[in-house]
């Protein structure tokens, strides 16, 4: 029989090796796989996307911007362009880089996959919005046409992704960009966010932190070279103009009824025995999760009474239209209410 110490040492060594190889994301195997992928098609596709995005916004792309976007050196970016040119995807004339029609339709296909996948993540999975872009970046390179069409079909052929970007059709048609950058909007008129740029990640995180996403209504207070100040989601927010320029808005005309403009309590503040009336379900709650809440009868105007809290601290059971329904705290936080004063 093996000596226990030897056996344990051997076992730990084995575990260490396996962990080194296959640790999620950071393991050697995954890293090697990523390097291999990036070396090939993925990098090329990302480059086309970058060129397309600049073209869409009528900005000139350069080797520098490409290198910066893909996080590669300028030499590598230049090599990449040569490869793309050889395949007839781009045309480089001096400092001007342009997509050929083939290159453009290739880029649109990738963008379609990316945005469809983001839509899928936001509607059908519980993945939070900070992760949508990153996951879509990974998946866009390995879904084939059949997968994509299937995905589009399953989603009911959506027209916009959750950031408000138009999703290109199968034939490569795409709606023109809407709205103006928030940093250039008119002070005094209410505006509605139509698009939030999800890159770079650090900037996007700041935008998300202010609760800005398509459909949110803003009131601009002032725009100075230092800052953009506005009311949104019931609080006053401030963004640097550079960041605000990544948010596109249109002036809102419709009725103000379904805007999240004043400060609201949420269902989560109710203690057992207290009750409130639903004002609205937050826009952050989407897809099946939102539909489920409405199925249970949680709609504007519904009276809800908190009944009891689980001994483990969460969820809480609420009385809704005669039925007792348990909801987790993160869902309760998305249901905005007005407290009712008299206890039931």
């Amino acid at each position: 029989m093996a000596d226990p110490v030897t056996a344990l040492v051997v076992a730990f060594a084995l575990v260490a090796i396996v962990a080194f190889l296959f640790w999620p994301h950071r393991g050697y195997y995954w890293r090697a796989q990523r390097v291999r992928r990036l070396g090939g098609r993925a990098l090329l596709e990302d480059a086309l996307k970058h060129l397309y995005n600049f073209e869409y916004r009528s900005q000139p792309a350069s080797v520098e911007s490409l290198g910066g976007a893909l996080e590669v050196s300028q030499n590598e970016a230049a090599d990449l362009l040569v490869r793309a040119e050889e395949r007839g995807l781009v045309k480089v004339e001096g400092a001007v880089i342009r997509l050929t029609p083939i290159g453009r339709s290739y880029a649109l296909r990738i963008i379609r996959v990316h945005r469809l996948y983001e839509h899928y993540l936001s509607e059908e999975t519980g993945v939070t919005e900070e992760d949508w872009h990153r996951l879509a970046e990974e998946r866009e390179h390995d879904l084939d046409d059949a997968d994509v069409d299937q995905l589009a079909f399953e989603m009911g052929n959506p027209a916009y992704d959750p950031h408000g970007d138009p999703i290109p059709t199968v034939d490569g048609e795409i709606a023109p960009q809407r709205g103006v950058p928030l940093s250039e909007a008119e002070v005094g008129t209410p505006v509605t966010v139509v698009h939030v740029e999800d890159e770079p990640e650090a900037v996007y995180a700041q935008i998300v932190a202010e609760g800005l996403q398509p459909g949110v209504r803003l009131d601009l207070i002032e725009i100075t070279p230092e800052r953009v100040r506005f009311w949104a989601n019931g609080t006053e927010c401030t963004l640097a103009p550079m960041i605000a320029s990544n948010v596109a808005v249109v002036s809102s005309t419709g009725p103000v009824e379904d805007e999240e403009d004043e400060f609201q309590d949420t269902l989560a503040v109710l203690r057992p025995g207290e009750s409130g009336e639903v004002v609205r379900i937050s826009r952050r709650c989407r897809g099946l999760a939102r539909r489920r809440l409405m199925d249970l009868g949680i709609l504007p105007g519904t009276e809800i009474l908190a009944e009891m809290i689980s001994p483990s601290g969460d969820p809480t059971a609420y009385r809704v239209r005669g039925a007792t329904v348990a909801l987790r705290k993160e869902q309760a936080l998305q249901i905005q209410i007005n407290r009712t004063l008299e206890a039931h």
Partner: peptide, 8 residues
């Protein structure tokens, strides 16, 4: 089912 509209 609670509904026929939520597509689960």
């Amino acid at each position: 089912t609670y509904s026929l509209l939520s597509t689960s």
